[in-house]
Design a protein around this nucleic acid. Structure first.
Length: 280
DNA sequence: CGCCAGGTTGTCG
DNA sequence: CGACAACATGGC
């Protein structure tokens, strides 16, 4: 087990549980275990340390980037919190959230699967998809399938992952990406508008899924996914404010608002919102 | 046991 | 363009 100093504004629980990823889970011994970037990792944080199961070199070359350790979160939080007091409250609720730099293909597929679906079931579908056609890494642990591996499947063969109507969308994405008709790597350096346009050529990818892929898979911090929770949250907490008003890290604002909204469902049932502003 | 889910598509007025 | 049903599945 190796270790490094706990970064500022960093919390594994908040980062893994805020709805941006689906392949990390807590173990009995209070570690987090997950698979990403074709590798599996065990990691936990203590008072002031981060402990991980891989080599220090692997952590620094691979995982530090995945966890966005170079991002200046305190600076972004200050900027966003100064813009709006309720956003400051949402930041205060989960100040350790990091926007993970996930693999773009995995993020795209994950959020295709997410549509009109519950999070526990999204996790199950992704697990079965990886077991079906992902590279085996260890006992019972599989990498996320490559575009080529998924393209080798059919709507019929995908029936065992029980993705429902989303199976045909996955096939569309795999066909476009594996054939080269859609080059994901190219979108990393392209402006976000080009990414939006390109991703929406996939059958089953609309505005929201495209925003998720851009934010979580391409780290486009202006991307602002608007799902049912965000619509409710924006309406009640930020009336009259548009995503662009949050500036060039609007996507991070979105994550604080999404998480805060989802953890306070009573806010949207007409109940007294006496917790808003409590920590201002 | 119905309701609903980090939506998108197709259709109709 | 806006509204709205259909879509598969299963957690709660």
């Amino acid at each position: 087990m190796n270790r490094t100093a706990l970064p500022q504004a960093f919390d594994l629980e908040q980062t893994f549980s805020c709805g941006q990823c689906f392949r990390w889970h807590r173990t009995e011994d209070n570690f987090w275990e997950g698979t990403a970037l074709g590798k599996t990792l065990r990691i936990r944080q203590t008072e002031n340390m981060l402990e991980f199961s891989c080599s220090k070199e692997e952590f620094e070359t691979l995982w530090a980037h995945y966890f966005d350790l170079d991002g200046d979160y305190p600076a972004m939080q200050k900027r966003l919190g100064t813009f709006h007091p309720i956003l400051k409250e949402a930041i205060h609720y989960a100040p350790g959230i990091r926007i993970l730099r996930q693999d773009s293909w995995e993020a795209l597929c994950s959020f295709i699967i997410s549509q009109n679906n519950h999070i526990p079931r999204i996790i199950g579908i992704i697990d079965r998809l990886c077991a079906l056609c992902g590279e085996p890494l260890k006992e019972e642990i599989f990498a996320f399938p490559t575009p080529e591996a998924l393209a080798a499947q059919t709507v019929e063969s995908l029936s065992e992952i029980r993705a429902g109507f989303r199976a045909k969308y996955l096939c569309s994405a795999a066909a476009l990406v594996s054939s080269g008709a859609l080059c994901l790597e190219q979108l990393s350096d392209a402006p976000i508008s080009q990414g939006r346009e390109a991703l929406r050529t996939i059958y089953g990818v609309g505005a929201k899924v495209a925003e998720c892929a851009l934010l979580y898979g391409f780290h486009k911090m202006e991307a602002f996914p608007m799902d049912v929770w965000m619509k409710r949250g924006m309406e009640i907490l930020f009336p009259g404010i548009a995503p662009e008003d949050f500036g060039d890290c609007a996507g991070l604002a979105q994550q604080y608002i999404f998480h805060y909204s989802r953890m306070h469902p009573a806010l949207f049932r007409g109940e007294k919102s006496d917790t808003i502003g409590r920590n201002l």
